[in-house]
């Protein structure tokens, strides 16, 4: 019989960029004036998994973000997916350095009721530092496994599956534990209207953040130089087929 699982998922508000990315005038950030915001797919799967684990074991599924009040939009999205409580650790920006984020999360976990499992995305969708979950695990002295694509709960333990070393690995960890997960772990649900209405009115607990700093500081962002030649238009519709097959033949991929 699996333990009752109380699960916390750490999520990050990130700009939902399209085909082009505009930078601010000082090039220190993405210009978000015309953008919406979202959470990364890894984290969406983490929320889905937490909700399922809580449902299955009669536990709780919480979500936490570190950032300014605007980041509550993403907490509410997670609540609409079925999370039952939300915590915001106050920070002036939604994209703090990973050391700062980890200190804020580890500090909050000291104040909140205990969780059996804390889930992270493998990497945040914008900065992609790929480290916050491991930092939190280190600070809290908890076992941690990354790249997780399968979670099974046992009695006081959790079994974490991931792809590594040219195959599939299963790791067994005592609870409480930490995992960084990957998209593909599950297929996240779309929030229902009922879920959205409930999320709108749900309270968000706000905690003060620590005054941490980091030696890693962004100077500027820039676009990767792209060296692609002009696109060659091969034609329209079915009539383009001979030109397409000429190209394929030239590449040597068909006879």
């Amino acid at each position: 019989m699996p333990t009752t699982m109380d699960v916390l998922v750490c999520i990050k508000r990130v700009p939902a960029v399209g085909a082009e990315i505009a930078l601010t005038a000082d090039a220190t950030a993405i210009d978000t004036r015309h953008l919406g915001f979202t959470i990364g797919p890894h984290e969406e799967c983490a929320v889905e998994e937490a909700v399922r684990l809580a449902e299955r074991t009669g536990g709780r599924a919480g979500v936490l973000t570190v950032g300014p009040p605007a980041t509550e939009e993403q907490l509410r999205y997670a609540l609409s997916m079925g999370a039952d409580h939300a915590v915001r650790v106050d920070a002036p920006v939604a994209d703090p350095e990973p050391e700062v984020t980890a200190a804020a999360i580890a500090g909050a976990l000291g104040e909140l009721p205990p969780y059996d499992l804390v889930l992270f995305g493998e990497a945040s969708a914008d900065a992609g530092h790929a480290q916050v979950g491991f930092r939190v695990a280190c600070a809290l002295r908890r076992p941690v496994v990354g790249g997780v694509k399968g979670i099974e709960v046992g009695d006081g333990r959790v079994s974490l599956r991931r792809e590594a070393g040219g195959g599939v690995e299963v790791h067994d960890a005592p609870l409480p534990a930490v995992a960084a997960v990957l998209e593909g772990l599950n297929l996240p649900r779309y929030p229902t209207i009922k879920g959205r209405l409930r999320a709108k009115k749900a309270p968000v607990r706000v905690l003060a953040g620590p005054a941490a700093t980091s030696g890693l500081r962004t100077r500027r962002l820039r676009h990767r130089p792209e060296a692609r030649a002009e696109t060659v238009l091969l034609g329209q519709g079915a009539g383009a087929a001979p030109a397409v097959v000429d190209v394929l033949a030239e590449l040597g991929v068909v006879r």
Partner: peptide, 15 residues
């Protein structure tokens, strides 16, 4: 690399 490498970030690494 940021966001999968679509952007590059110049950063100070002071430690």
């Amino acid at each position: 690399e940021r966001a999968g490498g679509i952007l590059l970030e110049d950063a100070v690494l002071d430690a």
